[in-house]
Simulated scan of single mutants.
Amino acid sequence: MRLAILGATGGVGRHLVAHALDDGHTVTAAVRDPARLPVRHPNLEVVRADALDAASLKPVVEGAGAVLSGIGAAGRRDPLKPASTSARAAVEAMSATGVRRIIVVSAGPLNRSGKGQPFLAARVLSPILWAILKDVYIDLEAMERVLRDSGLDWTSVRPSRLQDGPGKGRYQHAIEAGPNRNTIDRADVARAMLDFVDDPETIGHAVGVSN
């Protein structure tokens, strides 16, 4: 399958590219600065594009079997609101080119009900994180609304606290519930996203993931 990957130079995005190539997919990686993705592979095309602009994304997503986005905020108060802005751009580009499947990275604390999460994470840690990262989470909530309203086949992956380990090669997931453990390696988030591409049960849902 040809996959279009947005945010390919980010923490999750780099793993998306690596896993997708290992799986035998053909990858188009959209990046602002190709020098930040020094990967060479016969099945990889690195394209300079602005993931926040629909016109820039149209040639990236056209013909793709799925779009995967690892885009997130650069800080606690990113004025670009990259999650929701990129979602709008991707939806417009995909609608114009007939591509339907999109999978994005969100965050575990968006599971406001606490369903499926350990008591400490749901009742203690999540409120603290909301107080610290409110603007980031509001942007992610807006992103999920954009996807819900898009009519596309979307999945929002909500990981627990992200770590930079090499990946454990396994993960747990729960549909419309929070991650049931406190951490997950970024490599395993990418693994889950790729696994969900062909999983119809995840379409139209937020999915909690953790190690």
Rank of each mutant, 00 (worst) to 15 (best):
L16I: 07
A18Y: 00
A18F: 01
A18L: 03
A18M: 02
H19C: 08
H19A: 14
L21K: 02
D23V: 00
D23Y: 00
D23L: 12
G24C: 11
T26V: 15
V27R: 07
A30C: 05
A30Q: 01
R32I: 01
R32A: 03
D33R: 01
D33E: 01
P34I: 00
P34L: 02
P34N: 03
V39M: 01
H41N: 10
E45N: 09
V46E: 03
A49Y: 07
D50G: 12
A51S: 12
A51R: 02
A51P: 01
S56G: 11
S56L: 11
L57R: 13
V60S: 05
V60I: 11
G63Q: 11
A64M: 10
A66L: 05
V67Y: 06
V67K: 08
L68R: 06
S69H: 04
I71K: 06
G72E: 05
A73S: 12
R77E: 15
R77G: 00
R77D: 15
D78E: 04
K81L: 13
A83W: 00
T85G: 10
S86R: 08
A90K: 08
V91E: 13
E92H: 02
A93W: 14
A93P: 14
A93S: 12
M94C: 13
S95H: 12
A96W: 08
T97N: 11
G98C: 08
G98S: 06
V99M: 12
R100T: 15
I102P: 14
V105Q: 13
A107I: 09
P109M: 10
P109F: 13
L110I: 14
N111K: 03
N111W: 05
N111Y: 07
S113V: 07
S113K: 11
S113L: 07
Q117F: 07
Q117S: 14
P118W: 03
F119Y: 09
A121E: 15
R123D: 08
V124T: 10
L129D: 13
